[in-house]
């Protein structure tokens, strides 16, 4: 049988994800994103970890280059990729929020003026959110340093994820809406989930046990 390939995101989720896979005995070798290595094999468990950019995890999984993946719900929703969500890993918790400058008189989303500009790294999620509330805004897509956008007049508000809200406060922003909470998910390729059902079910089972023990 081929190796079970798991796509993991470089960055803050990597360490807890690897620890969880180690504890569950799904993948027991070390993984580190300090080196240039991107592929890590565990010949005993016949599993393989590949390291990819967080936003690319759903892509590797959808196309079947990885059977499983771990990434945030925020990334899954924004990517619109067709993958199965098998397990809420309850880690990497962060909130999707709408924030405006602390000095602004706006206190909720409906207070945003007609055609306000909203800066975000998540244009798809943001557009859907405002559309569901019937609020017309213009979405500006940025790739980082969102906090800056209101300060320099690029946007009236931002949609971003935050763990504690502290970075937002430090940058003179206030939260006017909690959209939803994102956590890390175990995702699977649709066909792998069928073709390798027993391997994957066993991995899900073991990961659930690790979570229950925590």
């Amino acid at each position: 049988m081929d190796y079970l390939t798991i796509a993991l995101p470089k960055g803050r989720l990597l360490e807890p994800a690897v620890e969880m896979l180690n504890q569950a005995g799904v993948f027991t070798s070390d993984v580190s994103d300090d080196t240039r290595r991107l592929v890590f094999d565990d010949p005993d468990r016949r599993s393989r970890v590949i390291l990819v950019k967080a936003t690319d995890v759903p892509t590797y999984v959808q196309y079947g280059s990885a059977d499983l993946g771990i990434c945030g719900k925020d990334v899954i929703d924004e990517s619109r990729k067709d993958v199965c969500e098998l397990l809420d890993l309850k880690m990497g918790r962060c909130r999707f929020v709408v924030a405006v400058p602390a000095s602004s008189h706006v206190t909720d989303v409906s207070g945003l003026g007609f055609n306000s500009r909203v800066a975000t790294k998540y244009p798809y999620v943001a557009r859907n959110y405002f559309a569901s509330l019937g609020v017309q805004v213009e979405i500006v897509t940025l790739n980082g340093s969102l906090e800056l956008a209101p300060a320099v007049g690029l946007a009236d508000a931002i949609v971003d994820i935050t763990e504690t809200g502290r970075t937002l406060r430090d940058n003179g922003l206030k939260v006017i809406a909690d959209m939803w909470t994102s956590t890390a998910r175990l995702i699977a390729n649709r066909v792998s989930y069928r073709a390798r059902r027993s391997d994957i079910t066993e991995a899900v089972q073991r990961l659930s046990e690790v979570m229950a023990g925590q």
Partner: peptide, 9 residues
């Protein structure tokens, strides 16, 4: 249909 077990739960 999406095999979204987290969503189903």
């Amino acid at each position: 249909l999406r095999q979204d077990l987290v969503g189903l739960k």
